[in-house]
Design a binder for these strands. Structure first.
Length: 937
RNA sequence: GCCUUGGUGGCGGAAUUGGUAGACGCGCUGGAUUCAAAAUCCAGUUCUUUCGAGAGUGUGGGUUCGAUUCCCACCCAAGGUACCA
């Protein structure tokens, strides 16, 4: 029989809760260690076995660090604003707050069963007004700040105001979304207040601007690219169009360079840093202006290859480019407008991924080449994206493959400007080993030299200059959703005004329904009370808006990432009502020492959080620039989904083996309806969902075989494995160790319960080793040298592995140790005691129990970590370095007990060693320990 | 399409970073114990094989005395791709 894990786990969980074992305070003479998990979104499906993977790993580190003498902050909370709760509300009318509360309670129950050492007194919930009050406050700060390029930091808007008041834009180096805003101090002073406010929006770090979105008129809402499939909405199949809408944006682009440079100072995984680098996408090149023929317009393009300027044979604008209409000649108007409509129906994602399909249209206008004065036709093509660079490119077919394809497709000229390079099949895109030709004053130059020279010439002509652009775009911050933080803004004469700090939180109003209003306003438009009374400083009924002091409030809410961009700071002082965290707490905990979470957040949460932290650092609100010193990506635990295949347009499902060549639609079915042999329980399926009750099934060999696919675990894919069931059957300690044993923490892996008995056996074995006939049995004798060796080697291995975060091999090391100790019949106190502490981070309940059985009065959490005695780590073998012809080097590992002569024989008997030597077996090998060896052939 | 990661027995994975591939665990096979089963313990387990040996780390090349490891090309899977979290 196994050890009584159910009893033990319950007992110690209650003990820890009662004693508040994991409650942490920041006055401590110990060094601090802050280990954090990315907090979960509390979904209706409950916690699945994928969630705890990271939590277990971080809990192991937290417990390990406590044993090592650190004051450990290990909190947990919930990212509780989100779309699923809102969608559930739309379907059922249930308020999202209620759903969220229910889900959180369930999560907590599940988390508590796994014996995590979280300090729950610091729990945060992003949807709690006491939390989002500070999210709104940070929004206000962003609104009230601008970016000073000279000091390279964010500064309060008041400093900008005084600059404008005194000098206008003279000597002003500010990040701004429009270069044509130069004004003098007197002009500024003469501006009407509302004009001044409109003007300031171009500088504020959060601002209102027109942005392109996927608009679905039928649903009355904006959709993510993900939700648009082949031009129609995923839900309902309604048409979707690209449309400009006035939205709040965050000026993250102002921080591009710092976000890029900062990567060099943090210990984050290289692939993740690389993803962020590529996402920020710094390109060095030039802006070139092409005058439009018979017009005052100058089309500005950005290019990374100014050296190829003489190879330009046409310009291409994005279909959304502001000047498309003006540039289109009457003869081309019909074609152009048809093309624009067509392009607006394709999502950005589609346009980027589909490179085989070339489309475009001629505007009828021509630009003038700034150097040759040749006429260059202006085209429109959807391979140019409006969001990047200037939304216009100079096309150099010989040097860019997309330009080449476009030119070939529309039969536009291709001019070769590379010396001795054939371009009749494809473009030549490399910058290496090229000599520019056919390019006037650039002839004979390398890429680099030509780039420099052409930029000089363009500057002289005032037709361009060197420039750097970033792929990183400002982040759209408005959501037409109910279940998010209200944006603390009201409008006076259409100009945004902040709801005063003292009035925060601006709480979510009650609404009659959670859908957009009929005239397309966000769900908050359904609230009766959603206007701001500036006199009484409170939210009042919309009906009073005509009143002089009452103004409409912003109806959009914040996106999911708002609350998660600063929560790590809140944990430092989670219950503070005066500030987002006290200065003392911030200065003590400073930053996260180890942050664990999935790499799927690489370019979202992890970039936004860095941005907000930089911003808050600039304002002196936090003591460090980078919020997380070290980050580890945990791989997702994937589910194995099961599919049945419906024959198209019928209610017949055919077994997997019979699908070949038939038009079938795969349908997810619940994995609990499928056997390990992939056979479907058809009766179970009929009961599971009513619409299967009259379905037909075509079987093979008498059974219905399902298809399997590894996917993200998700309720909608019916592939969720619940940890509760595992805890019931095997216990939390087994689950914890098994999840670690499953494979490297960073790697994604499919869940498979089959192997769990191995870990369960291991814990039982450990228990049995120190028990006889159900009673704790331990010897006070001195352990044998062999047992001490086993112990100390395990201490050494386990410690190294935890430090390197190789937790799966750690579990193996424990298994080997217990196997060895069992074989040695070792049940000495002097072995068990350190072993218990060593194992406690992984299996805290059983270790706490053993600890108590050893007669210890305190919790094992306070025990100090064992140190390996090098005396017992010594290897019986010795390494002998060998070199051959001064070129090849390898080492021989031989037992130390061998004499000199025996070594020689041992080497000659080692066939593998001999075969290294170029096929020739050496006749004699002379070994002098620790010295290089002579080999005679 | 683009960016990032991964591909090793029947399965999850290990391999000191270029030096005996398959640690540890699951599963399977055989044995011990048992009236029997569960549990436990012991042994075996990459594949092919004419039992000599041969093949083998997604595929095809390359570098090297030697490649799971380094280089090139390709195939497949996962994550992200800016409004899922």
């Amino acid at each position: 029989m196994g050890y009584p894990f159910q009893e033990i786990e319950k007992k110690w969980q209650a003990f820890w809760a009662e004693k508040q074992t994991y409650h942490v305070v920041h006055s401590s003479d110990k060094p601090k260690f802050y280990v954090l998990d990315m907090f979960p979104y509390p979904s209706g499906a409950g916690l699945h076995v994928g969630h705890p993977l990271g939590y277990i790993a971080s809990d192991i580190v937290a417990r390990y660090k406590r044993h090592k003498g650190f004051n450990v902050l290990h909190p947990q909370g919930y990212d509780s604003f989100g779309l699923p709760a809102e969608q559930y509300a739309i379907q059922t009318g249930q308020h999202p707050a209620i759903t969220t509360e229910t889900n959180i309670n369930r999560y907590r129950e599940q988390l508590d069963r796994m014996g995590f050492s979280f300090d729950w007194s610091r729990e945060v919930r992003t949807s709690d007004p006491s939390y989002y009050r500070w999210t709104q406050w940070i929004f206000s700060l962003l609104f009230d700040s601008w970016y000073d390029k000279k000091e390279n930091k964010a500064r309060p808007i008041s400093t900008l105001l005084s600059h404008l008041q005194q000098k206008g834009t003279k000597d002003l180096f500010a990040v701004c979304d429009d270069d044509t805003l130069e004004i003098s101090a007197s002009t500024w002073q003469a501006m009407a207040p509302s004009d001044q406010e409109a003007y300031l929006l171009h500088f504020r770090l959060t601002y209102l601007a027109e942005t392109e979105v996927n608009w679905c008129p039928a649903l009355g809402t904006v959709l993510a690219n993900d939700e648009v499939v082949q031009g129609v909405s995923e839900r309902g199949g309604h048409p979707v169009e690209r449309k400009k809408m006035k939205q709040w944006s965050m000026r993250i682009s102002a921080f591009s360079d710092r976000l890029l440079e900062g990567l060099n100072t943090i210990d984050w995984p290289d692939p993740l840093k690389e993803m962020q680098r590529n996402w920020i996408g710094k390109s060095v090149g030039a802006q070139v202006r092409f005058a439009v023929e018979n017009s005052s317009l100058n089309i500005e393009v950005f290019t990374t290859r100014p050296d190829t300027l003489f190879g330009v044979t046409f310009l291409t604008l994005a279909p959304e480019h502001d000047w498309v209409e003006q540039l289109t000649t009457s003869s081309q108007a019909a074609d152009v407008s048809a093309y624009i409509i067509k392009a607006s129906q394709r999502s950005e994602r589609e346009r980027m991924s589909d490179v085989t399909q070339i489309s475009g249209v001629f505007t009828g206008s021509y630009a003038i080449h700034p150097l040759t004065n040749e006429r260059v036709p202006i085209w429109i093509g959807d391979y140019v994206l409006s969001g990047y660079g200037t939304g216009a490119v100079m096309a150099v077919p010989c040097g860019d493959q997309r330009d080449y394809n476009f030119a070939t497709h529309f039969d536009l000229p291709i001019k070769n400007i590379f010396h001795d390079i054939a371009i009749d099949k494809e473009a030549f895109t490399s910058k290496e080993n090229v000599v520019i030709a056919n390019s006037d004053f650039l002839n004979g130059l390398s890429c680099k030299a030509a780039t420099k020279k052409v930029i000089e010439r363009l500057s002289e002509l005032d037709a361009g200059e060197g420039a750097i652009t970033y792929r990183l775009r400002d982040a759209v911050f408005s959501r037409q959703r109910y279940w998010g933080e209200p944006i603390p803004v009201y409008y006076v004469n259409d100009q945004p005004q902040l709801v005063p700090d003292s009035c925060l939180p601006l709480q979510l109003p009650e609404v009659s329904k959670y859908l957009p209003t009929e005239d397309g306003a966000p769900p908050l438009g359904n609230a009766d009370e959603w206007a701001w009374d500036t006199e009484n400083k409170c939210v009042v009924s919309n009906k009073k808006i005509d009143n002089k002091s009452i103004f409409p409030l912003e109806k959009n809410t914040m996106p999911g990432w708002a609350g998660s961009s600063w929560y790590f700071n809140r944990y430092m002082d989670a219950n503070n009502t005066e500030a987002f965290a006290s200065k003392e707490a911030l200065n003590y905990w400073r930053e996260v020492d180890l942050y664990l979470g999935g790499s799927e957040h690489a370019t979202g949460h992890l970039l936004y959080s860095r941005f907000w932290q930089y911003f808050m650092y600039d304002l002196g609100l936090v003591p460090v620039e980078n919020f997380a010193k070290k980050l580890i990506n945990q791989g997702m635990i994937l589910g194995e989904s099961a599919f049945i295949y419906r024959l198209k347009d019928t209610q017949t499902y055919i077994s997997k083996g019979l699908c070949d060549g038939k038009d079938v639609v795969p349908v997810h079915v619940d994995i609990s309806l499928v056997s390990t042999q992939n056979e479907l329980d058809i009766e179970g399926l009929r009961k599971w969902q009513p619409h299967f009750s009259d379905a037909g099934f075509e079987l093979e060999n008498g059974v219905y075989v399902v298809g399997r696919e590894v996917e993200k675990m998700s309720k909608s894919k019916y592939n969720v494995v619940n940890p509760d069931a595992i805890c019931d059957q095997y216990g939390a300690d087994t689950l914890r160790m098994y999840e670690m044993f499953l494979g490297p923490i960073e790697q994604a892996k499919p869940w498979n319960t089959a192997g769990i008995s191995g870990v369960s056996n291991f814990l039982n074995k450990l228990w049995r080793l120190f028990h006889q006939d159900e009673a704790f049995a331990i010897s006070d004798d001195q352990p044998t040298k062999e047992s001490l060796k086993t112990l100390h080697k395990t201490i050494d291995k386990v410690t190294q592995d935890i430090e390197q975060f190789s937790l799966n091999t750690t579990v193996s090391a424990f298994m080997i140790a217990v196997n060895d100790l069992t074989a040695q019949k070792c049940n000495q106190r002097l072995i068990l005691e350190p072993l218990t502490v060593l194992l406690a981070p992984f299996a805290p309940h059983i270790c706490e129990e053993l600890w108590a059985l050893l007669g210890k009065e305190t919790s094992i959490t306070t025990a100090s970590y064992p140190v390996a005695n090098p005396e017992y780590l010594k290897d019986d073998s010795k390494e002998y370095p060998i070199s051959f012809n001064g070129k090849m080097r390898f080492t021989l590992k031989l037992p130390t007990s061998l004499t000199k002569d025996e070594i020689e024989i041992a080497v000659l008997q080692d066939e593998r060693t001999l075969s290294y030597l170029d096929g020739n077996a050496p006749k004699k090998i002379i070994i002098v320990p620790n010295k290089i060896v002579n080999i005679v052939i």
